[in-house]
């Protein structure tokens, strides 16, 4: 394990990861999986901002029209 962590530090191998139960775990370690995770993070960030603005506008009208 120590050798693996050392190797990971110099970029030779992937660091050991905590085992997660969901089905995405197996592909998460592949290059395609990593690209997918980046895409998911980007999509969720954009959607969260949009939904946040929608909710904010919905509640802002309550404050403005009160």
């Amino acid at each position: 394990m120590a050798r693996m962590i050392e190797a990971a530090a110099v970029g030779e191998v992937e660091p050991p990861r905590r085992q997660v139960r969901d089905g995405t775990a197996a592909v998460a370690r592949t290059p395609m999986g990593r690209a997918q995770r980046r895409g998911v993070r980007r999509t969720v960030t954009v959607l969260a901002v949009v939904i946040g603005i929608f909710y904010l506008l919905s509640f802002l009208q309550i404050l403005l029209m009160k």
Binding site: Y55, S58, F59
Partner: peptide, 10 residues
């Protein structure tokens, strides 16, 4: 859903 649920919430 994303477009209209906040409207219902408001």
């Amino acid at each position: 859903l994303i477009a209209v649920i906040p409207v219902l919430a408001g």
